[in-house]
């Protein structure tokens, strides 16, 4: 609680404590203690992914490629949840938490970080559990290169964090952001690489979709999952540039509103 001469280590300890407290508060508020409680954190994304996998199987989407459709849906849709859920939760996150600023150690950034951690954690656990279940159940083969899968997942998570911070602050500045985010996220979903392989597109289509950073992580992760069966198209440097740009933008925006936010 001392201020002024706080060492970096003490400041870090406080921030960890505050984010931990916000995490618990967020989990209890969102999921409560009823029925399965905090298990909803990953049960919810699991239900989404299972539903999509079932739909795609029923719709006969396997004619799009020779890949097992369950694994295709699992990798594609889990990644969509990862980049889409973080901005969705960061949008309009400031307003209901403004009164927490009366606790001097709580900063707007902590509110965002707690939500980002929760979303990233939930979708990651969901992806891991579903992969294990499908594998043990014999529906999919295990990933060929686990490290590459983890790396692709990380790149998408980083993208979600940068986008989440940026959209979160912008939504505080302008209500339009919240209005356009939902249609934008919905329209970007089919373009993000979840439902197709870049290699199956005509060259002009490939050039266009590869402008979207999400496509690169999706292709990279799928290459790790399926190995040489597919020909993946990606440029991780391009995606890293996007991620870094969004992260810096988000943090700068966050700084710019520090003197503007005030509780009631």
């Amino acid at each position: 609680m001392n201020s002024g001469g706080d060492s970096l280590a003490a400041a870090w300890a406080i921030q960890r404590r505050v984010i931990g407290a916000l995490l618990m508060r967020e989990i209890l508020t969102r999921y409560g203690r009823h029925n399965i409680g905090f298990l909803w954190l990953f049960a919810e994304p699991m239900m989404f992914t299972l539903g999509v996998a079932a739909l795609w199987t029923a719709a006969g989407a396997h004619r799009m490629s020779n890949l097992p459709i369950v694994a295709f849906a699992l990798t594609g849709y889990s990644l969509v949840l990862l980049w889409r859920s973080m901005p969705t939760r960061c949008i309009s996150a400031i307003e209901p938490n403004l009164s927490l600023l009366y606790h001097r150690n709580v900063k707007i950034a902590d509110v965002f970080f707690a939500r980002l951690i929760l979303e990233a954690g939930g979708t990651t656990i969901s992806f891991v559990i579903l992969t294990l279940v499908f594998w043990l159940g014999g529906w999919i083969k295990p990933p060929e290169d686990v490290l590459q899968v983890a790396c692709g997942w990380f790149m998408m998570g980083w993208f979600g964090i940068g986008l989440g911070l940026t959209m979160g602050v912008l939504s505080w500045k302008s209500e339009i952001i919240e209005k356009i985010w939902h249609p934008a996220a919905y329209l970007l979903f089919p373009l993000s690489g979840a439902a197709f392989l870049v290699d199956s597109l005509p060259p002009i289509g490939q050039d266009v979709v590869l402008l979207l950073p999400m496509v690169h992580a999706t292709e990279f992760l799928r290459e790790g999952f399926f190995g040489s069966v597919i020909r993946a198209h990606y440029d991780l440097t391009y995606m890293a540039a996007w991620n870094a740009g969004l992260s810096v933008t988000g943090l700068l925006l966050l700084r710019s509103i520090a003197s503007q936010v005030r509780p009631e």
Binding site: R17, A21, M24
Partner: peptide
């Protein structure tokens, strides 16, 4: 109460 206590350690 838990939340406040966590925030202030």
């Amino acid at each position: 109460l838990r939340f406040i206590c966590r925030v202030y350690g």
